[in-house]
Write a protein that binds this DNA or RNA. Structure first.
Length: 582
RNA sequence: GGGCCCGUAGCUCAGCAGGACAGAGCAGGGGAUUUCUAAUCCCCAGGUCGGAGGUUCGAGUCCUCCCGGGCCCGCCA
């Protein structure tokens, strides 16, 4: 509707002054008493027309009051305030009723290929709350992008290369030996585990599964290949991708533990995500970049452009020439590559795969990492605005008014699964979207478990369920079917201001969702939902549907149907269920 | 020392590509239940938008400085 108003204003400016309108704002006024839509256009025109803003606003208001889209158009202190006419709102609302969710659609993306990379947690431990938040924000953005005509891909980057994976193997092996009472036999493993190992209980779980599958056959290095076969034939319910690819090189027993650990962890991560309703389209392996020689190729490419030099036995990239604080190491003096190298290679690969826009969600602790990646991309002649990075801040969990800091299972952090099991995916998703993702979030478990208006998730879902309840009741008592029958013709019978307001808010949801998408602010959807649900609850408490005069009742049923569509769609876009009853 | 983020009602936070008297929920006080789900609704009270300057017709929103809090500054990932 904003676009419609915008074009009418631009048209009016042209007719009145014979000039093109500047880039003006069309927005909801802070105070709804002022009207439905306001614009600052007169302020912007006042300079070029050399006239007082309020006079210009007056001209425009006069012009627009002739338009039957508007009930009124007024100039107030330089603003043009517009109020939609009842006729216009009714005809829009009828469109909503006949088109359903389709009414809210718009082809903004025109098929633009967008990739969203998020979560990408190291597969060396369970997902924690911060990962969950990134997952929800990323997935919601993906849903919005798809709804608005973008060709969006969800991708998870698996850091399955490098030292962390080796350390996972060491940790699993140590716990395995411990289970057999043999840890003293490998002082090298014990020492490394104690210094840098993963200490969470989940490693013991992996070791137990391993022990069950292979018995003590890993005690002797000669049996590693045999152990691999035993794992593969043991009948785990998850794909043993890493294990099956494993081939013995140096320290084969550690490597086998790594591979098996990766398989188990990735399975757990996939389960958590899918429990939250998130399915990735692509699981991209860091290791595959090395296997394809892409990291070497990248370095050759950068060398060819003259951005690489050698110093102190390492290979450096001149990122400082592109806005970074200092140059960064690509290849360490021991010959291994940094995470940075593979990460540039990864983004280079994304570019070559034809993504026209890439959005990364990273943990906020990576913020110092942004300039160097952007610097590298510029060296590769990748456009500045191709990559958008959003940082996701951490989540603190509160229970009984106190912060929950640790978990036995994960060690130093609270695993996402614990929260999911306690409050369910709907609450988790909703609450993760109640704050801007780049600021820290406090998650109060107790609030979300309450079944009252204190709990925003239930509050919104309840509005949806209530409408469904009315529809059920109408069907049973009167044999009417608001879902199937078309009552939109009875909207004329509605006389109350609040009914028009409910229509307006439902219709405006389209503009709001579009703005949320373009500004990448998915958290605002929860506020929009609370707002609309609140207005509905008020209405429900003050006006009866069943028992009103027949025309009014049918009009109200049509109204509720449209409101439910707006709520249902918004819930769907944030991935929260819209229950028929509660 | 440098960088990023934050500081809005007692609490948790919206609002920040400048705009009209600063919003919501919770907590606090008072009310509504012969009813389509009270898992709801209504009313009241509550703020010098951390502080000081600046830009502007107009600043919670932009700029500078200061104060307070969090996070990051590795040939780790």
């Amino acid at each position: 509707m904003k676009e419609l108003v915008r074009s009418k204003l631009a048209q009016a400016v042209k007719e009145l002054y014979g000039i093109e309108a500047p880039d003006f704002k069309v927005e909801k006024p802070k105070d709804e008493k002022l009207g439905d839509i306001a614009t600052n256009i007169a302020f912007l025109l006042s300079k070029s027309l050399k006239r007082n803003p309020n006079e210009i606003a007056g001209d425009l208001a006069n012009k627009l009051s002739e338009d039957d889209t508007f009930e009124s158009a007024e100039a107030v202190r330089g603003f043009v305030n517009l109020k939609f006419s009842k006729g216009f709102l009714l005809s829009e609302f009828r469109k909503l009723l006949s088109e359903g969710e389709g009414y809210f659609k718009e082809d903004l993306g025109k098929g633009l290929k967008v990739q969203l990379e998020f979560v990408s947690a190291n597969p060396t431990g369970p997902l924690h709350l911060g990962h969950g938040r990134g997952a929800v924000v990323g997935d919601t953005l993906a849903r919005l992008f798809r709804f608005y005509g973008f060709d969006a891909t969800r991708e998870y980057y698996i850091n399955d290369a490098g030292r962390q994976v080796y350390l996972l193997g060491v940790s699993v092996l140590y716990r395995y030996l411990e289970l057999l009472g043999e840890e003293e036999k490998r002082p090298d493993i014990k020492e490394l585990f104690e210094e840098e190992g993963y200490r969470g209980e989940y490693v013991i779980d992996i070791a137990k599964a391993l022990l069950e599958a292979v018995g003590d056959s890993l005690l002797s290095e000669n049996n590693v290949l045999e152990a691999k076969e035993r794992i593969l034939s043991f009948g785990f319910e998850f794909p043993l991708e890493y294990t099956s690819r494993f081939s013995p090189e140096k320290e084969p027993e550690v490597e086998l533990c790594s591979a098996f650990g990766l398989d188990m962890m990735m399975e757990e991560i996939r389960e958590d995500l899918s429990y939250m309703g998130i399915d990735f389209d692509v699981w991209f392996s860091e290791r595959s970049l090395y296997e394809r020689g892409l990291v070497e190729k990248l370095i050759e490419e950068l060398k060819g452009k003259g951005y690489v030099y050698e110093a102190e036995g390492a290979l450096w990239l001149k990122t400082s020439e592109f806005g970074d604080d200092k140059d960064r190491v690509l290849r360490k003096s021991d010959g291994s590559y940094t995470y940075f190298s593979s990460d540039i290679a990864y983004h280079w690969d994304k570019f070559k795969r034809g993504f026209e826009k890439v959005i990364d969600l990273w943990g906020a602790d990576h913020h110092g990492y942004v300039p160097r990646v952007k610097a590298a991309l510029r060296m590769l002649n990748i456009p500045e605005d191709w990559l958008e990075v959003y940082l996701v801040q951490m989540v603190k969990l509160f229970r009984g008014g106190k912060e929950v800091k640790m978990s036995k299972r994960a060690g130093t952090f609270v695993p996402l699964r614990e929260l999911l099991e306690e409050v369910g995916p709907d609450a988790v998703r909703f609450v993760f979207l109640t704050k801007r993702s780049d600021t820290p979030l406090d998650f109060d478990v107790d609030v979300v478990k309450e079944k009252s208006s204190d709990n925003p998730v239930f509050y919104v879902q309840y509005a949806h369920a209530r409408i469904s309840g009315v529809f059920r009741e109408v069907k049973e008592r009167l044999g009417l079917d608001p879902e199937g029958e078309d009552f939109s013709g009875f909207l004329d019978h509605l006389e109350e201001d609040i009914e028009l307001k409910l229509m307006k808010k439902s219709l405006m949801m389209k503009d709001e969702l579009i703005e949320v998408t373009l500004r990448r602010d998915p958290h605002l959807i929860t506020y929009l939902l609370i707002d609309l649900a609140g207005l509905f609850h008020y209405y429900y408490n003050h006006y009866r549907i069943i028992g009103s005069e027949e025309g009014v009742m049918k009009g109200r049923l049509a109204l509720l149907k449209g409101v439910r569509t707006a709520i249902g769609l918004s819930l769907k876009l944030i991935g929260v269920s819209a229950p028929e009853r509660m």
